[in-house]
Design a protein around this nucleic acid. Structure first.
Lengths: 199, 199
DNA sequence: GTCTATTATATGTTCTATCCTATATTCACC
DNA sequence: GGTGAATATAGGATAGAACATATAATAGAC
């Protein structure tokens, strides 16, 4: 239910429409922390409205569809505060790339290197995004506690990326230096090593 | 479709039953890389069978339900090899904890500290699991390339955890030293700062 | 003697996320 | 005059993950 709370958090700053949430929050400042597509946002707003955590005011716009401006209610704030103050389990990480390494004994060095380098580029790209977000944050538009906390959150995400990049560099180095034992073909030898299925 | 390939990878080592995959792979050695519940595994095996990537042999067992042993087919191996050799997008990270920091300006230091410490404990727990997995791996039962790759994968996951723990330590330190600006109440002042919704 | 765990497979339901499509208008560009 | 982008909301379809329940026998604990 984290998307609910992301939206409640955004609405606790000021009232917004669904479109506004999408284009000016989830596609922008919130992107490093949580993403959501448009359909999800509108559906979540409906749900929050049904739960009375937000209220709606329709604003007429000539020609266009009416704008529905959502505002957080007292019960929404209470819900948000309770959620913010308690610990939540961290999501289990499921990364296809680690599976590739795990099962990659039959993959030729060249292909392996390609995968490693594309992964490295991706983390570098994310790190760049985080740097950009951090520089946009430092404009003094927010309260000091908010600003420090957001910088800290960005920094945590950046640490993660940096750790992965330096590890990937080690991997790439090992492969290009030929430090990785040669390709093993696949499985036939191992099947004998393991023996038959136990009864 | 990574679960499909995790299962194909496991079956490329040796034939296994669904129960076997669950209890001896996904709950064990594969746990740091990919988890799956029983229902998911059986349904995926069905799907792989329909796609002719695995074949089944039923083994009668007195009293118990028959054991269905799955074996990878030639087309399954081809599918697996192709997947292993190409790059896949890394999953977008969505971590409720980062949202908590992002919106946490109204949370009292004590609650914040509780959240930080419980998160730290969780990463420490995972790191311990990774250490255990690494020591179980170093038994010489596998080919040299497989062993190095698996150690490397575990090491990458461990680096991630270590980076987060050291960052969390900084956060905890900052809060306990009072380096974090005081609580801001919530929103009322900010609402004025931001001004009204633009027309 | 009952209760729980283990071995083994399978279905049902719900939730979340992603993608695609529909609707409706204004404005800028070519 | 047509095309596409921006503004704005909403529904449908699908896939993945999580959780719960059904069935069925044996072995061991209390």
């Amino acid at each position: 239910m984290s998307l609910d709370h992301a939206i409640l958090g955004l609405l606790s700053e000021r009232p917004r429409s669904g479109y506004d949430l999408k284009t000016r929050c989830f596609d922008d400042a919130l992107k490093p922390f949580w993403t959501a597509d448009q359909a999800q946002i509108y559906r979540t707003l409906e749900r929050l409205k049904a739960a009375k955590h937000v209220s709606v005011t329709t604003r007429r716009c000539a020609g266009r569809p009416d704008r529905r401006i959502y505002e957080i209610t007292r019960s929404g704030r209470e819900q948000l505060d309770a959620w913010l103050a308690q610990a939540h389990p961290s999501p289990t990480l499921r990364d296809p790339f680690l599976l590739q390494l795990y099962f990659g004994a039959s993959v030729p060095d060249d292909d392996l290197l390609g995968v490693l380098e594309s992964r490295r580029a991706e983390h570098e790209r994310r790190l760049e995004e985080l740097r950009l977000a951090a520089s946009e944050l430092a404009a003094g538009k927010l309260g000091p506690r908010t600003e420090v906390l957001r910088q800290t959150a960005l920094d945590g995400a950046a640490e993660r990326e940096r750790a992965l990049i330096s590890w990937l560099d080690d991997c790439i180095h090992a492969v290009t230096e030929g430090a990785l034992p040669g390709s093993e073909g696949r499985g036939i030898g191992q099947r004998h090593l393991f023996g038959a299925e136990p009864a």
